[in-house]
Design a protein around this nucleic acid. Structure first.
Lengths: 143, 143
DNA sequence: TGATTTTATTTACCTAGGTAAATAATGTGC
DNA sequence: GCACATTATTTACCTAGGTAAATAAAATCA
């Protein structure tokens, strides 16, 4: 019997598969997906406060602290004190900046490969349906 | 600019949201999603070898070992020695069997809530598109 | 100003995924 | 039968998500 459970089971398995693929790609650079997510952020938006990072990535602060500590010791990022002395402002190192083009190309290649069987329309449709999962009850308009 | 990256980012965030919701539901029973997945397996298929469990759930053996150890100490499952003395056969305790109907109802309620805005057709469409992600290159048939 | 609250970050600890390697029982081939 | 390979499970350790509580700086307010 096929039940709705399959959707969540399949989603979970697909996500783990994608993360595994990405980690294998990133292994060449001694990186992991969570670190890549932060590099991507900083490349897009420039220097960010830690709070800005975890709010954007929608993860908790301690998760980000741990990943940043690792990235700092691996020379991917630096953390400077802000005007507000509670804050720490994160920016890319020169090393990270020099490596980013290669890393981005590698990730893009992987993403295109994973999506090779989906047309643009498929991808839009997929996003639409994904956004419906867990969304508030749709209001039926009358008239 | 909207890029294909959004699909993987969104998928990841949605999956974490779902797991968080499920864990909150399961908290009442002192359970977690990974433990629920195993309970569900055993309820569907009866007693299983550990290898059967992790192959079905598509996770690695050590992950399953850890979860089963916890579940055994919490009286959800028992592990018996098999004919092949390397194997351990996992089955539900009476306690687990007595609790399962309530747990299943709770999970089903959550799943229906998460999918309330998707028609059956939406759900089928979603599964079709999800299966296309990371699939082998589709062969174009001629003629 | 000084007490209190809020905010940013960290620390400690939990579940949960992964890999690599160890262990023990089973299967295989000479 | 015995050496060798395979298989099931475990152990050790890594990343990575979460919560709860601690700490320190900033903001608020009586």
């Amino acid at each position: 019997m096929i039940t709705t459970n399959d959707i969540f089971h399949s989603l979970n398995q697909k996500m783990r598969f994608i993360i595994k693929e990405a980690n294998e790609k990133l292994n060449e650079f001694d990186l992991y997906t969570s670190q890549w997510a932060i590099l991507y952020c900083l490349d897009q938006f420039g220097p960010m406060k830690q709070t800005e990072i975890w709010k954007y990535l929608n993860v908790e602060a301690p998760t980000t602290t741990r990943t940043l500590t690792k990235m700092e010791s691996n020379n991917w990022i630096e953390r400077a004190e802000g005007e507000d002395k509670r804050e720490r402002i994160v920016c890319l190192t020169d090393y990270a900046k020099s490596k980013l083009p290669e890393i981005k190309a590698s990730i893009q290649e992987m993403e295109e490969s994973l999506l090779q069987n989906l047309s643009n329309e498929d991808q839009e449709q997929f996003m639409t349906l994904l956004n419906k999962i867990g969304s508030e009850k749709e209001v039926v308009t009358h008239g």
